[in-house]
Amino acid sequence: MIRTLRQIDAFARNALLEGLRNKVLYAVLVAALAALGAASAFGALSLHQEERLFNNLVFAIGHLFLVALAIYQGVNALHREIDSKTIFTVLSKPVTRASFLIGKFMASVGILTVCWALMFGAKALTALALGYEVGALHLATYAGSLMQLVLVLALAFFFSAFSGPLLSALFTFGLFVVGSLTPQLADASRQFANEGNPLHLILDATLYVIPDLEKLNLSYELATGIEVGWGYLVHALLYTGVTSGLLLGFGYLIFARRDFA
């Protein structure tokens, strides 16, 4: 038990040092903050609507950058170890493949959380400087974003367990897009069902398997000022936990059988 904890700690520290010394991560963060700045300026230019625009635009941009980072981090976390063969020195130690996967995942969540905190911390500070309010609803929206990031990471890990880096990134991105369109897909399915088109069965099945990322997107609530309660947050947290757990679990089943040659 203590060994497993120390292993996870080792993975986390290693990943953190890797992130701190990785120029790509900095570049993306700097670009994101620059975009954020530009968006704030843009928001300030539009009359009356500026606060709403600021919130929506900056949140959307910040979140997209974070999702891109999550895909990058999630795919690289496993593939860099496999491609550079550092995994030989890790899996030949008393490390189970499960703790390897979990350790790497936790470490990636840690890194993403730091980026997320920087991003939305910057946004909140800018908002305060501009005299806008930063309330519970804002924080709930950011929390939703973080939960989405965790799900995207879990997707990237799942795909990385059995496919190459490029495909993993593409699949993850694809599912991120589809998962963010679940209400639209549900609409389409209803439409098809009314027309008696059997396509709705496929859509329903798809909706059943893909993670529902839209559920975690609170930007609409933020824009319209609809309050979200604790019940929602607990539900969202459970959903994120269970879905990521399942994804990692399935990923593990494949990963455990892999050869590292």
Binding site: R6, D9, N14
Partner: peptide
């Protein structure tokens, strides 16, 4: 740091 990492994997303090 490298050795510390491997030490962690081995469960060493």
């Amino acid at each position: 740091e490298l050795m510390r990492f491997y030490g962690g994997l081995l469960g060493l303090s």
